[in-house]
Amino acid sequence: MSGSKTAIFGFGVLLFFAIMAVSVQFLPVPNPNALNFQAFLPPSLAHPFGTDYLGRDVFSIVLWGSRAALAVGIISAGISAVIGIVVGAVAAYYGGWVDDVISRVVDVFLMIPVFFLILIVVAIFGGNIFYTMAIIGVTIWPSNARLMRAQILSLKEMTFVKALRSYGVGGFSILFRHLLPNGVAPVITNTMLQMGAAVLIEAGLSFLGLGDPRVVDWGRTIYLGEPYIAIAWWISTIPGAFLALLVLGLNLLGDGLNQVFRPRMRGSK
């Protein structure tokens, strides 16, 4: 029960940011890139979250920044989920050398420090947010593959797989229409956690100055506000708090789902 409450709270947070991202263009907030001559204004009615060192409205930056954050989370984790599910499922179901090769690749990926790999790639190709999403996606899938593989390995030994084969159902269909839906829950859970991780990785890259300058982005705002933290705490702290809230929400959603998902299975031996 507490699992579902956690999941609902996490989902509520995600929904809050989703609504923010979708509706921001209709809200009466100033252009987040618009400069004015009133830099370092503390929070006030006109600028609820104050202004940054160029006089940009931090409230507007926070609202617009939710788009980049969610896009990074969804696309990176989505790429990771698709690759991880297919690779893990194929490895487990077909076994043999296919499994050996895939498992070695996964091991290698899990050994290297992913953040530095991404850092190097982004440093080489420059701060384009689409590259960043893609590179995050194609480096974080191995944990999904490992989860999926473990699930399929145990599921494929179950009697219902023998039953399906005895009806004449093909291997492809058994894998993708029967085993996958039964085993995908931990991957979905992990995907929520990975969305949070991807948002943090992207923010981290931006914080190191490797963000996409064309995109309104929490991480870059934190980075650019950091030198002024003593005189204008709101520039870095408020976007940082929203970043933390989104990541927290995604983690709670992942953990909650983890407890909620229970296979519909009874009386197995």
Binding site: T159, F160, Y167, N182, R264, M265
Partner: peptide, 29 residues
């Protein structure tokens, strides 16, 4: 040639209704 498996609890895909299972059996056939 058909078999009824030893453990009825494990004979069916737990995420499919009986109808989905039967429909698939007949479709494959």
């Amino acid at each position: 040639l058909r078999m009824i498996f030893q453990n009825p609890y494990e004979t069916f895909d737990p995420r499919k209704t009986l109808w989905q299972t039967f429909s698939e059996i007949l479709q494959v056939a």
